[in-house]
């Protein structure tokens, strides 16, 4: 019984090997110029990984358009398959996991990846909103509550297809807000092993929120916590702890 009875086709999703993400060297595709210009950031690596997929067959596509050459206004085919993203995130997690010592470090790493995504998502959403309004009256929230509602509704809708399930202020402090999602789509297939029960891979989402908030000049410490209920065992709370500076500014601005 040595596996030789069996087809030797490799498992498509196999392997904890990390070579998918070690594409820091300039990839063969001419269009992923961002990846070569910023090879040191982890986000740059991911951009290069995705860029490689889009242009993996230059022979078939005569004029390969890189992800940066596409129009920024919302077009068809802008969605990414949930399975594709689930596999990508699974590799991101196992790649990160092989480079950290503790759960806290892993969460920090995932969060910093999300942060980079959040900064870009913010610019994109603001640009699209302005374009949709015909370039008139560009809007950028500056007060705390509208900003949080913007995250709750628009950012979540852009990322996950639906708004978050709840936004509430913590009973513990004025500067703490909670965004809840009953079934977080990004991590729906991940089950945390018992010895890492503190971990929540939604740290990635927390990073996105932190990036968006930071881009709107609302610095905050954002963490993710899995608080399961009987109905929703994967219910996740994104805890936003705002910087004192934000609270001071809100007080000055008044009602």
């Amino acid at each position: 019984m040595d596996g030789s009875y069996y087809p030797s086709n490799p498992l498509p999703q196999s392997s904890t090997s990390t070579n998918r993400f070690s594409l820091t060297a300039p990839s063969s595709s001419p269009s992923t110029s961002t990846s070569t210009s910023k090879p040191t950031t982890t986000a740059g690596r991911i951009a290069s990984a995705t860029g490689l997929y889009t242009s993996s067959s230059p022979a078939l596509a005569p004029a390969p358009t890189g992800i940066l050459d596409r129009p920024l206004n919302k077009g068809k085919g802008a969605e990414v398959g949930m399975s594709a993203f689930a596999f990508l995130l699974a590799e991101v997690v196992s790649y990160s996991q092989s480079r950290v010592d503790s759960v806290t470090d892993l969460e920090r790493r995932l969060s910093s990846l999300g942060y980079e995504a959040g900064l870009r998502i913010l610019s994109l959403i603001l640009l699209r909103n302005t374009q949709q309004a015909g370039g008139k009256d560009p809007k950028r929230e500056h007060r705390l509550i509208p900003i949080l509602q913007f995250v709750h509704t628009q950012v979540y809708k852009y990322c996950f297809g639906k708004p978050a399930d709840g936004l509430e202020r913590s009973v513990e402090g004025e500067d703490e807000y909670m965004l809840t999602m009953n079934q977080p789509p990004l991590t729906q297939h991940i089950s945390i092993p018992k010895d890492m029960s503190q971990l929540s891979c939604e740290a990635f989402t927390a990073g996105i929120v932190e990036g968006v908030l930071d881009g709107l000049d609302v610095p905050a410490r954002v963490t993710a916590h899995t608080v399961g209920t009987d109905q929703y065992p994967q219910r996740t709370v994104i805890l936003i702890k705002l910087d004192q500076k934000v609270m001071d500014r809100e007080e000055v601005l008044g009602k």
Binding site: T16, S94, H189, I190, I192
Partner: peptide, 16 residues
């Protein structure tokens, strides 16, 4: 297969 904490060909240890 979409769980990053699973090692291929090893016993399945996923509560989900």
């Amino acid at each position: 297969m979409k769980n990053p904490f699973h090692t291929p060909e090893m016993p399945i240890n996923s509560s989900l």
